Amino acid sequence: MRVAAGGFAAWTALAGCATSEPPGPAAADPTTAVYAEPPLPDGATTETAPVPAPATTDCGDPTASLRPDGITEGPTLDAIRARGRLIVGLDWGSNLFSFRDPVTGILNGFDVDIAKEIAFDLFGDRERVEYRILNSADRLAALENNLTDIVAKTMTITCDRRQRVTFSTGYYATGQRVLVVHGSGIDGIADLADRSVCVAAGTTSQQRVRTEQPAARLLTVPTWADCLVAMQQGQVDAISTDDSILAGLAAQDPYLEIVGARFSNELYGIGIHKGNDDLVRFVNRTLERIRADGTWNRIYNRWLSVLGPSPGPPPARYED
């Protein structure tokens, strides 16, 4: 009995010690929990006040380029052939135009295929291409510093840009619209006053929103893929750029829709270092070929049929 009593006293003492410890933290109440806001994409900047659109340069018809004239040789072309590959600047976040296949890791898209056709005419091999990944704001500097031979990255031909680089003839015609969440109540550019709008830095789309709707609040990011993330995180009310790019974003999210009419006319060109006229004429020769032999339509149908039936390639415009 003494042993049993002693054991019971020891158990009672231990139980008393156990019950005297402070209780653990209470379970979180999901109705009162506080969640941190997701961070903005790296490199994002917000305009806190309207910024006036920059003055533009008048150069006549900026889309007029150098006539091909059957050129196949020249100092720039010789250097590219000696290197053995064409260096092309583009990005991997413009769905439908240039994007990385999530399964294979290979770059695909409309702009990628256009670049491959130029490589084919240079080497007889569409795979003799080296890609340099660029943000929109880096395109002109990459050409000026000879980091790429060409830039094929949804680049609108403008007089301002032609002061720094040369362009091929236009190879794709498009126009700017607005992308929003279904049921947002936004029906176009007029509804973006006092709304947050995402644009990529260094684009004509950024300038166009400032001109057409100066009361919009702009979130500027490095790539259009960053705009999609910001939209999905509820950090912007809209994205505005060419409807061809918006279609690629909308294809990745069924809750998004393109609204409103086009409020600009854009013509994409292949960017080339100023003074490399032999390369300009050669690229225009390739563009002439793919217009004539049906290649342009085949590339369109492969990547851009979501925009509707092929409108056909834009006609070439030459300055000489």
Score class of each variant (00 low, 15 high):
160 D>R: 09
176 Q>C: 06
191 D>C: 06
236 V>D: 00
67 R>N: 10
97 F>W: 14
99 F>H: 14
77 L>M: 01
156 T>L: 06
102 P>V: 01
205 S>T: 01
124 G>I: 12
148 T>E: 10
41 P>W: 03
284 N>V: 05
226 D>E: 04
265 N>Q: 13
46 T>V: 15
29 D>F: 07
113 D>A: 11
143 L>D: 04
2 R>W: 09
79 A>Q: 01
151 V>D: 13
106 I>G: 01
312 G>E: 02
103 V>L: 14
88 V>E: 07
62 P>W: 06
301 N>S: 08
206 Q>C: 03
92 W>M: 03
40 L>N: 06
293 D>E: 05
138 D>K: 08
121 D>Q: 15
186 I>A: 12
214 P>E: 03
161 R>A: 03
182 H>I: 08
52 P>E: 13
127 E>Q: 15
246 L>G: 02
104 T>K: 13
199 V>Q: 10
133 I>Y: 12
156 T>P: 01
176 Q>M: 12
127 E>L: 08
301 N>P: 07
123 F>W: 05
103 V>R: 14
13 A>W: 14
7 G>A: 02
111 D>V: 04
262 R>N: 12
78 D>N: 10
227 C>I: 00
147 L>V: 12
149 D>I: 01
107 L>M: 07
225 A>L: 02
170 G>T: 09
243 D>L: 10
222 P>G: 05
183 G>M: 10
40 L>I: 02
149 D>S: 01
197 V>H: 15
127 E>V: 01
272 I>V: 04
3 V>E: 11
286 T>E: 08
195 R>L: 15
294 G>F: 14
152 A>K: 05
316 A>H: 10
16 G>V: 10
276 N>S: 05
221 V>N: 06
196 S>I: 08
2 R>V: 07
125 D>R: 10
16 G>P: 11
53 A>P: 06
223 T>P: 02
63 T>A: 12
182 H>Q: 13
161 R>C: 00
237 D>K: 02
277 D>L: 03
58 D>V: 08
234 G>C: 03
280 V>T: 06
155 M>A: 04
17 C>E: 11
319 E>S: 14
59 C>I: 09
10 A>Y: 05
100 R>M: 14
114 I>C: 10
133 I>K: 08
81 R>E: 05
196 S>F: 10
214 P>K: 06
194 D>I: 02
318 Y>V: 00
2 R>K: 10
167 F>P: 00
199 V>E: 08
143 L>V: 12
315 P>Q: 02
85 R>E: 13
50 P>W: 04
133 I>H: 05
48 T>V: 03
88 V>Y: 03
158 T>R: 06
29 D>P: 01
8 F>A: 09
263 F>M: 02
102 P>C: 00
221 V>H: 05
146 N>Y: 11
212 E>C: 07
9 A>V: 00
197 V>W: 15
211 T>S: 15
110 F>P: 00
19 T>K: 09
53 A>M: 03
112 V>K: 04
109 G>M: 10
179 L>Q: 07
266 E>I: 00
32 T>E: 02
259 V>T: 05
58 D>T: 11
296 W>G: 07
224 W>S: 00
14 L>C: 11
49 A>L: 06
308 G>Q: 11
54 P>V: 11
233 Q>A: 01
100 R>H: 08
221 V>Y: 08
193 A>P: 02
303 W>H: 13
101 D>S: 09
